[in-house]
Nucleic acid binder design. Structure first.
Lengths: 114, 114
DNA sequence: TTGACATGATACCTTTTGGTATTATACATA
DNA sequence: TATGTATAATACCAAAAGGTATCATGTCAA
């Protein structure tokens, strides 16, 4: 239970919950981008993009690097790993239980399909 | 971009965004539970738990099986795999780019730390 | 210095979300 | 059948989320 309550997980999953933010991560996976660059790919205002980037930064999924009057947003793979690690906890006993769960579920189905 | 826009991803990540729901998933990973069972572990009402379970079901993270007057909630590992697969897309080029990103980032740091 | 431009910061609006309270329905059992 | 129990379904509320509009700030360049 301690492993699962690590701090940072909430920020990461919160940031990942929005489709626009996930799409931003895809863009940033290919190249670093300024706010303007990112906003160019969406039909929302720069201010809205900025909010998304702030949430992504708060979730440690990106880092922001001032460069002159611009701010370059860069993917932070380690942050995404936080979410991956949490889900991997489940994978551990999927491997153990997946078959058992499946057969048990199917047996239940047959039993309950009256 | 198509792989990443698969349907179901939004439901899964939306469901995972709430800490109570993630904790419910941990409980369900150990044993199937009725709504009452789950509610027994939290300080919120049954109705609130029911809402969380509805969202988890909508995200295909659990399945619900009526058994008499009870409803048994069961983890659905395949649903969690939806989120894992999406994150794995990033892992692919972490492996390719992680070192490059790190060294590039450190170089940027040095360049920008005036 | 002055102007253009990229971003930051608020204020405000609407929708969604997490929660409670309440009432209704279904079912096991005495 | 009557009754207690498990869940369903609403209605409602407060807070958070996603968005726009607006104005301030900082920086590059002429």
């Amino acid at each position: 239970m301690n492993i699962l309550n690590d701090d940072g997980i909430q920020g990461a999953f919160r940031a990942l919950a929005d489709p626009t933010r996930r799409e931003i991560l895809v863009y940033l996976s290919k190249e670093d981008m300024t706010i303007g660059d990112v906003a160019g790919h969406f039909a929302i205002t720069r201010a809205a993009v900025k909010k998304h980037l702030t949430i992504l930064e708060a979730g440690d999924l990106i880092t922001v690097h001032p460069r002159g009057r611009e701010r370059v947003n860069r993917l932070r793979p380690e942050g995404l790993k936080t979410a991956t690690d949490w889900l991997d906890y489940f994978q551990q006993f999927w491997d153990q239980r997946l078959d058992a769960l499946k057969t048990a579920a199917e047996a239940e189905e047959r039993k309950n399909n009256d």
